[in-house]
């Protein structure tokens, strides 16, 4: 296939009168890792579900693997792997049977599923739990099993909706590592996340969604370069400080400032110089920190919200 893996034009999803996805455009190229970033309720899952052909679009155009989900749902889904936001493992079955039956849903021959399932359990470090039921597994184990399940049919396109939410740091890094491997083997990845580091680590390109729309698009580096200064100075304020007053006082030091609950961010191209100037104003050295601008800042500037809330 030569065209894009996913192409959306003016893609829209409404639930009754409520607009969850409001005319978004994007294209996802073969072999790329593409991210949707956005706060709660931005419309990421709704978009992912339309791509996964489990939610009909209300308006606009959508092509997945060159096909139209409205007509070719089963054919498209046969070539997708899906890790939904909420695990939906089959709780009446064991770990192993979950994989076996899922392979059968894709009409794979049993011998092939057995071989593949053993590999994948190894891949997600769950081989020792293969005869366990799903219920008693920990949240992270269920997540890993869901990921293993999504890979059974050797998907060309893998949809991951917040794949690492609920994983401990070690499991998270393990998963990133696995996703790199998949990407290297040519699988196209589409993921949503709340974690900036995850987006920066994994995504070649991403879009930031807010309020059902796409507000920015590009590589993580491009997004930072286009929207933020190179460096950020964080000034931590004592609890009793008057935030508005301090913000007004700090305003002249940066190109732009963002007051948060307990600190003020100053965007500047020369962090050290700005920090020095601030400290000469009587701010304590320990409360002033210089760092490089990140996606977090892009997000804050574009949506007016920090990601974690």
């Amino acid at each position: 296939m030569s065209g894009p893996m996913v192409a959306a034009r003016a893609l829209t999803k409404r639930f009754g009168a409520f607009v969850a996805v409001d005319g978004v455009d994007f294209e996802i190229e073969p072999g790329e890792a593409f991210g949707f970033l956005g706060p709660n309720g931005a419309g990421k899952t709704s978009t992912m579900r339309m791509i996964g052909c489990v939610s009909p679009r209300t308006a606009g155009e959508l092509h997945v693997l060159g096909l139209d989900p409205a007509h070719d749902g089963p054919d498209i889904r046969a070539r997708l792997g899906v890790v939904p936001q909420e695990d939906n493992l089959d709780t009446e079955l064991t770990v192993w049977d979950n994989l076996m039956i899922y392979g059968r849903y894709f009409d794979l021959p049993r011998a092939e599923i057995r071989e593949r399932a053993a590999e994948l359990l190894e891949f997600v470090n769950l081989s020792d739990r293969r005869d366990s039921r799903v219920d008693p597994l920990s949240g992270g184990m269920k997540r890993r099993l869901t990921i293993a399940r999504s890979l059974l049919n050797r998907p060309e396109l893998l949809l991951l909706d917040e794949p690492t939410t609920g994983l401990d740091p070690q499991a998270r890094h393990l998963l990133w590592d696995r996703l790199y491997q998949l990407k290297r083997s040519g699988v196209t990845l589409v993921l949503t996340t709340h974690y900036m580091d995850e987006a920066e680590q994994l995504c070649d390109r991403l879009v930031i969604m807010d309020n059902a729309r796409i507000v920015a698009e590009g590589s993580p580096r491009r997004l930072i370069a286009d929207n933020v200064t190179r460096e950020v100075v964080e000034v931590r304020l004592p609890i009793e400080a008057d935030l508005d007053f301090e913000a007004a006082r700090l305003k002249r030091f940066g190109d732009r400032i963002e007051p948060l609950a307990d600190r003020v961010l100053l965007y500047t191209d020369d962090g050290d110089a700005t920090a020095a100037a601030i400290m000469s104003e009587g701010f304590e050295a320990g409360s002033v920190l210089v760092r490089r601008a990140s996606l977090e800042d892009v997000f804050l500037i574009l949506t007016g919200r920090s990601l974690e809330d």
């Binding site: 749902g73 089963p74 889904r77 046969a78 939906n88 493992l89 009446e92 894709f106």
Partner: peptide, 14 residues
């Protein structure tokens, strides 16, 4: 309750 079919419908089944 078990959301069994959510998983099923992500596969080619309708």
């Amino acid at each position: 309750y078990s959301h069994t079919y959510d998983g099923v419908l992500a596969s080619p089944l309708t």
